[in-house]
Structures are given as structure tokens and as C-alpha cells.
Design a binder for these strands. Sequence first.
DNA 1: ACGTCTTTTATTGTCGCAGACAAACTTACA
DNA 2: TGTAAGTTTGTCTGCGACAATAAAAGACGT
Lengths: 337, 337
Amino acid sequence: MSATIKDVALRAGVSTTTVSHVLNKTRFVAKTTQERVLQAAEELNYAPSAVARSLKVKNTKSLGMLVTTTLNPFFAELVNEVEKCCYREGYNLVLCNTDGELEKTNSYLRMLTQKRVDGILVMCSAYDDSLFSSLIGQRNLPMVVMDWGPSDDYVDRIQDNSVKGAHLAIRHLIEQGHKRIAYIGGPLEKLPAKQRFDGFMEAMEQADLAIQDDWVIESDFEFEGGKLGMRQLLSCSSLPSAVFIGNDAMAMGAMSEAQLSGIKIPQQLSVIGYDNCMYSAYFSPPLTTINQPKERLAELAISTMIERIENPRQEGKMIMLEPNLVVRSSVAAVSTK
Amino acid sequence: MSATIKDVALRAGVSTTTVSHVLNKTRFVAKTTQERVLQAAEELNYAPSAVARSLKVKNTKSLGMLVTTTLNPFFAELVNEVEKCCYREGYNLVLCNTDGELEKTNSYLRMLTQKRVDGILVMCSAYDDSLFSSLIGQRNLPMVVMDWGPSDDYVDRIQDNSVKGAHLAIRHLIEQGHKRIAYIGGPLEKLPAKQRFDGFMEAMEQADLAIQDDWVIESDFEFEGGKLGMRQLLSCSSLPSAVFIGNDAMAMGAMSEAQLSGIKIPQQLSVIGYDNCMYSAYFSPPLTTINQPKERLAELAISTMIERIENPRQEGKMIMLEPNLVVRSSVAAVSTK
DNA sequence: ACGTCTTTTATTGTCGCAGACAAACTTACA
DNA sequence: TGTAAGTTTGTCTGCGACAATAAAAGACGT
């Protein structure tokens, strides 16, 4: 079917070694020989087989990425950044959506192991700790966990400081004069949701603000969940003046629902989100939110990954990234009474 | 590092052949032997090397996907569906964002070729026709083009009938009593943009409606482009009563911009989009739009791909999918005068 | 006991490439 | 002209799995 190194060698009148060396620039070859080889390769439209090469050199220059779902815009943006970094470093990215299913996660983990990817980026919620640790322990497969995922002494973790982010959000609301603050968050078993919740509670406490029980709602980080959360909130006997929503996707659903009920944002209800997804600048009104440094996150994930590939046996480290507030128009100032 | 088939054979006290056969179930092996092998594999945590296997059997069970950018929610959703299908069929998906750069496209094409992917899904705008056709012609690499991409007699194309979709959109506006209709579309060198534009023109003509020159705006299919397009539209001396926007991302930007200028949607301006991205149900107001059957598109792409992998030499076929209207709340009825 | 089947296992070469090792071929200088 | 040093290229083995072929072990009839 396609030309092999042997064909090229034959056509150039040299040995396969020489061909290999000129193609990989791994030792000196006389200029004229080089040219002959290059030309032969060109003429035959030769593309070296990475699979044969991988078998020999024991690396594949590809990474697997396990992610719950790229339907969530935040993940989509993160994947995008990760892909960019991979490209820059000469790696391929194998995208694996787990859809939160253990079955699919395990199955992908097996596939990736067999395909001998050089490492796995993990950003998913349903997982099988024992499987992961057997991969890390026995096969010594490099793994870096972004956002959330299994914990282990030997994986690197790199995450957003969501407690701080939640503080930022609440403090901003308070500075704008809000006292009656609600919260719609993600499922508490996911780390970032938990952290944002904790941050919310802490910040409220520090400001001596009461937390009304039916104003804190646990949802699912999805559009529809935000919508439902808002509906629930609107059914409360008294309404808050502001709501902190655990991610931008839910914020979108929530705003849509509120506006459908004739509530004006931000005049009647201020909204602050989390993630700073690209599109949150295009909500009506544009969403004030907490920015996660997605580009940095991806860069750090990949550079950590590569470092670990080159130097496998080392303690796992944990890197924390600092979020920041981005003010747009979904939070109104309230006259402090 | 990791166990090989030989280790398993040794431990089970059989030959590698036997191991291979019990693992692949490719011929009968005595039950007791099977058990011994399985147990040995289990104990060694054996994972067969797909790279060695691929070298021998000449397929990799992975597909490459070239896409301009997954930042666009429509592509993100499509990639998601494609990934699902791949998983179902036992394939891995290598994600390649080209960012519209020829350089990156070519570079990825080379990588994918070397990695010996079994086929390539193409959905990108910047391409090098000669490179593609050399891949198809010489290496006989299966390729299916979704949405837009290079044309060739030997690639399969599967696309949305965007002319029809545009008709659907315009007819809906007309049925709701609109006569003053504007258009904000994508770059005309992209096939879907061209088709939607043509459909728009045709439908307007068929309804004997005048097309006001400064009401047709060519933009870029991105959020920001929609915003800019709307700004331009709003600067016109007279305003339309409705606008057809070439995709949902632009629709979002456009609606945000219009609402920022105090224009009420749909009371003062009706908006209809294209794509039916997941989140368009959560705009305020929820977006009336043309639905592209993304799931079908992905399914057809993959099944066509697999068919072509199994049966390489055949004429390229072209499959057209029919869009449909989904009515939400961004188009208001207008009293026909 | 012998040959003939059938069932089960072993041997070996192959896929395409890389690299350890080494050979051939120059040139320089005694 | 011989030898050491330097330059350039080649031979050969093995990565891990698969499969074609060969071989061994039972089963059975005569």
C-alpha cells in the first residue's frame, strides 16, 4: 500500500539506516546522500509509519483526555486550549467523553492503555479509583488531573482556587450593596462545586449575612439545571436581590428563566456567574462572572504532563490557579439602607 | 515496563500463539488452558499493545477529525456526536483544531498520515486541495467531508441542505407577516454561508420582497461577528422588522447588541437563527431557529466512513440532510398592513 | 502395534523502524 | 607504503503481536 523505509533506501541506493538518519537528523550524513534520500522520499510520497516507530522507541506522542462532556462550554474551551498546547508540543490529543458513565470511563481507560498513549489528562467525575491507581502504580502511566478527578499521591493536580473565586463573587455583590444573596450551585460531590459552596458560606458568614435555607439550591452545572434552579428560587416566598450561580452555563439557563418570568436583570435581580465562558460576554445583559484562567490551566497541565513523562517517578504536585472577577452588566448597585 | 504476550505465555506455560488466540477468541482453545491464560494475563495486568498489533494488522482503529474550531458551539456539538459514534464503533477520535490556518491543517494532515489513522473526518475551511487529493489518491486514505471542506470525486460528502433551511427561515418570517427582512450571514467562501445566502435571496424573490442592500451583511459566523453585524444593521437609516442570522453564535452576539441598544426582541425586532445549538433554547428570549440534524449528521459521517474503510475503492457519494424549523420566542407576528 | 484423523500447541517469519555495533573508505602523516 | 585517525555508511537484531506452517498428542479402527 504505502511506501516503507526500505523502498526509499532502495530507490536512493543506500541502507535503511541512512534513510532513517537523514529523516530524523540523528547523525551526520553527507550532503549529497541526504539529497538523494530526500528526493527518493519525496518521489515515493513516503510517510514514515509512526506505529512502527512507536513500537521501537516506546512512546506515541499522543495524550488521552478524559472529560465528562465537551458539551459544557467551559470544558469545550478548556479542551480547545489543551489541544493548542498539545499541537505546540508535537502531541496528538485523543478525545474521550465519558458522559459521566463509569462503564465508558473504564472502557476508554483500557483503550488508551492499549494504544500506549504517553499520558492521560483527566477531567471527569465518574471514576473508578482502583483502576486509575492500578494504571499509575503498575504501568506508571503519567496522569494529570484538572479541575476534578481521582486523587492519588502520584498524580499531579492542577486546579482553580474556587473557594477564593466564590469569595470574590460574594464580596463583589456585597460591595454593590446586596445583602439578600442566593446561591445555585453544582452537585456537591464534585470538588469545584463543593469549594464554591464553601466559599459562598464562608464569605456570607464573614460579612455577617444570614443565609436563607431555601435560597441555596443544589443543581447540576447544566443549562437546564440553571433554569430549574431559578424556577425553584422564584417560587420562594421572598426573593433575594442577587444570586451567585456556580457556573456560566447554569447562569444562562437561570437568566433565561427569570427573564421569561418578567424579572429584569439586573434591576430586580443581580446575577453573578463562574467560569467566564467566552459567550458570557454576549448574554443580555452581559454576565458579570468569575474568570478561571483557562489558558494558564491548559498550559500548566501540558507542561506538567510533559515534565512527568520525562521524569516519571516523582511526588505528585498540586498547582492552584487564582481566579479573578470580571465585571460586566448583570450586577446592579443597590442603595444600602 | 509493561508485560508482553510472552510474559503471559510463560506464566501460563503455553505458547504466545495460544495466548493470542484466547485473548482474541480467534480459534478454539481447551477450557482449562483458557483459564490459565486468562489468569496469567490478569495477574500480570496485561494490556496488549495496540501499537504492535496495528503494525501487524494494518489498521489502528482511530480516526482523525479536522475541524476549524471547537469553540463554535455548533462544531462542539457535532464533535460530541461524532465522538459518541466513534466510541460505539470501537474507534478513537484524534481531535485536530486547524484554527483556519493552512499551516496547522497541513501539519496535522501529516501527523495523522504518519500515525496511520484509518480515516479522516474533515470539517474545516482552510485547506490545500493538492495535499488532500494526494492523500486520497496515493495513500487511498478514506475521508469524509462534513459541512464544508475540499471536494474530490473520491471523498464522501455529507451536508445539510442549507438552501432549504434558509427558505424555511424566510418563509416562517413571511408567514408571521414580516416583509422588511435583513440578513447577517457568514463568509461567502464557506459553502454553508453561501447556500444560506442563496436560499435567503431566492426565498425573498419568490415572495416578491425587496432586498435592501444595506440590510444584507456578511460577517464571520462568530459571536463577535454577530454583534458587529447587528451594530452595522442598527446604523441603517431604516430598520427591518426581522433579521435572519446565518448561525446561532452570531444570533447570540446580535441579540445581545440589539438589546444593549434598548431594542426589544421580538417586539421591535424578530430574530431567527440557524443551527439550533443546544443553548439557543436558553437565550432571552429563546431563539427560533433552523435545526440541523447533528446527530444524524454524525451518524451518517461515521457509518459512511466505516463503509469506506471496509470498501475503499468506490465513487464518492454525497448525502444531503434536511433541516427543519424550530419555533421558540424570538419571532413575533406582525399585523400585515 | 500401526496408520489415520482430529485436536491442541510450538516454531518461525513478518510488519516498519531505530540504533548498537562495526565495517569501509578517506585522508594525513611518518 | 603503512598505519592511525577521521569520516561516512551498512549489517543485524529486536520492539510486541499475529498467523502460516509444522509438530505433537490423543482417539480410534483394524
